[in-house]
Design a binder for these strands. Structure first.
Length: 277
DNA sequence: ACACCCTCCTGGAGGC
DNA sequence: TGCCTCCAGGAGGGTG
């Protein structure tokens, strides 16, 4: 599942590959992938626009266009943005191609998604889609102090809070579990009950975990690929996610899987202490 | 405010 | 081997 490091990797590669290119034509093969506007309007309005750059906000890919506008893409579980692949993506031999953007030079840009959860948004004002997102965890504004302020006012369980994109934007199931292990904090702890030392550890852990994953071009468990179709190598560095029953790298005790807020959650019960306040 | 459940969607894993 | 059921999960919606 692409989270912040995976989207960051995709954005950097796409930025290098498609900046300056013009979208000559868009072909939408599965209408529901276009969240806004209508499919007709999307195909009509995106044609002829030039890509000024590709960025990331939270888990959104963000293509700035000229004439001014924004193409926002959320890959959800299994979405991919690919510049590699068949010479004719319209041939119909791949049932998971949902949008093909034909560029004025080079390979077309394809949106491919097995599970069909991903969505595209073409908007004049990016805040229409991104407006509700919380802090960007790799920005200068994301300090230990700021994290402390966020946590101190909420009594929710830590894990669902960290997954809430309105609070912090970009973390998903893998990197929340990894960050909490790194910080040695139990996912069921109440946010408002963390001590200053724990807040500082969590802040540092989020930076460490996300930074390492970006260096490794993301975690490929099954579906995630870069735009060139390559896998990310961060999977070999995961400490807890998907490692139920395997020994903790710090203490040797078996990693445990529990369910928190309907999400599979991996932790070391020895290192990550008591679940209660 | 917060916990919980459902829906979307499919391939893969597990059970027998 | 084959079939059947269940499960994973990001986000948005609804309910208690």
């Amino acid at each position: 599942m692409p989270e912040l490091p995976e989207i960051e990797t995709i954005a950097r590669i796409l930025h290098a590959q498609v900046t300056g290119k013009t979208i000559e034509r868009a072909r939408v093969l599965w209408p529901r992938v276009i969240a806004t506007p209508s499919v007709d309007q999307f195909e009509r309005e995106i044609a002829g626009r030039r890509i000024l750059g590709v960025m990331r906000r939270g888990k959104f890919l963000w293509l700035r266009l000229d004439p001014p506008g924004h193409l926002l893409v959320h890959l959800r579980m299994t979405g991919r943005m690919l510049t590699c692949g068949p010479p004719d993506p319209m041939a119909g031999d791949d049932p998971y191609n949902h949008v093909v953007l034909e560029l004025d030079s080079g390979a077309p840009l394809r949106f491919r998604d097995v599970r069909r959860f991903g969505r595209m948004y073409l908007v004049a004002d990016e805040a229409q889609v991104l407006g509700g997102l919380g802090l960007e965890p790799l920005s200068p504004e994301f300090t230990a102090e700021q994290l402390g302020v966020i946590l101190s006012s909420r009594r929710r369980q830590l894990k669902p809070l960290l997954l809430d994109q309105r609070v912090i934007a970009g973390l998903g199931n893998i990197y929340v579990d990894e960050s909490l292990w790194e910080a040695r904090i139990h996912p069921l702890r109440r946010a408002s009950c963390l001590g200053a030392d724990e807040v500082a550890r969590l802040h540092a852990a989020i930076g460490t975990v996300l930074g390492r994953a970006i260096v490794n071009m993301g975690t490929t468990l099954r579906d995630y690929r870069t735009p060139e179709g390559r896998e990310g190598s961060n999977g070999e560095f995961l400490a807890v996610y998907g490692r139920k029953g395997l020994p903790c790298g710090r203490c040797g005790q078996p990693i445990v899987r529990i369910v928190v807020g309907q999400r599979g959650t991996h932790l070391c019960p020895t290192c990550q202490g008591a679940p209660l306040d």
